[in-house]
């Protein structure tokens, strides 16, 4: 579903990604872990071109998105993104947050979009919050709305950028549960996370990133129980 070849990304003189190769199969859940500053968020943001790519090639579902001729908006509409800080639109209600994309990008009618959005809200457990404004929601609820907003575009891939890092600990569970349900339904997911429990339980594969490269990748059980790379060992010994 996603193929990344020799991806480089620099901010000025600072090279953040130093040649990443990765593959994500359809229906696979890949978790990206690593210390802060390792480039894992940048890597994720390159996958829907929120960062322009310095060099390398990214292919999503057969489309070479790094090709300058490609329609970037169409690509983005097929790749859902969930942010650490939710980034809900505060001037719109929950339902409007969800329907904005389908109405403006897919050009479907408001009613149709609403009809499609309500089951999504139920799915994330917020069926009663359709007309609430984001400010009245807890962090966990906001993040679940953000997930529903992405799903409304019927993406082929969902990217999660530390989706639970800004949440109070007691709110993390609900968000992870929604993500787990999604994974079980067969959504292709790339998750940058510090939730090692989630990576172990839900992830099909784990990438360990450090200093702008993928240091180690493999089955979650192997990475967590028997890491090969000394950097992986060091990182895991600090956090587990």
């Amino acid at each position: 579903m996603i193929t990344v070849k020799d991806l480089h990304k620099s901010f000025g003189d600072n090279e953040v990604l130093k040649g990443i190769d990765a593959k994500v199969d359809e229906q696979e859940v890949v978790c990206v872990i690593g210390p802060s500053g390792s480039g894992k968020s940048t890597f994720l943001r390159c996958l829907n071109l929120l960062e322009d790519i310095t060099a390398g090639e990214v292919t999503i579902d057969g489309d070479v998105i790094t090709d300058p001729k490609v329609n970037i908006n169409e690509i983005r509409s097929q790749v859902g993104m969930v942010f650490q800080h939710f980034n809900l639109f505060p001037h719109k209600t929950v339902i409007e947050n969800i329907t904005l994309g389908p109405v403006k990008v897919k050009k479907i009618s408001e009613e149709e979009a609403k009809e499609a959005a309500l089951p999504l809200l139920d799915k994330v457990g917020l069926g009663d919050k359709a007309d609430a404004y984001p400010d009245s929601l807890s962090g966990g609820q906001k993040q679940r709305v953000a997930i529903a907003r992405s799903l409304a575009m019927e993406p082929k891939v969902m990217l999660f950028d530390e989706p639970t890092s800004a949440l109070d600990p007691e709110l993390v569970g609900d968000v992870l549960q929604v993500m787990k349900d999604l994974a079980e339904e067969g959504m292709t997911m790339v998750v940058v996370t510090h939730e090692m429990g989630f990576a172990k339980e839900v992830g099909d594969r784990v990438l360990f990133m450090d200093e702008g490269i993928v240091m180690e990748e493999g089955d979650p059980n192997q990475i967590f129980d028997d890491p090969q790379n000394p950097r992986t060992q060091e990182f895991l010994s600090k956090i587990l």
Partner: peptide, 13 residues
């Protein structure tokens, strides 16, 4: 916030 712009672009606007 920059994130508003990113969220808009990431749904395909």
């Amino acid at each position: 916030d920059r994130g508003q712009h990113e969220a808009g672009r990431s749904v395909g606007l």
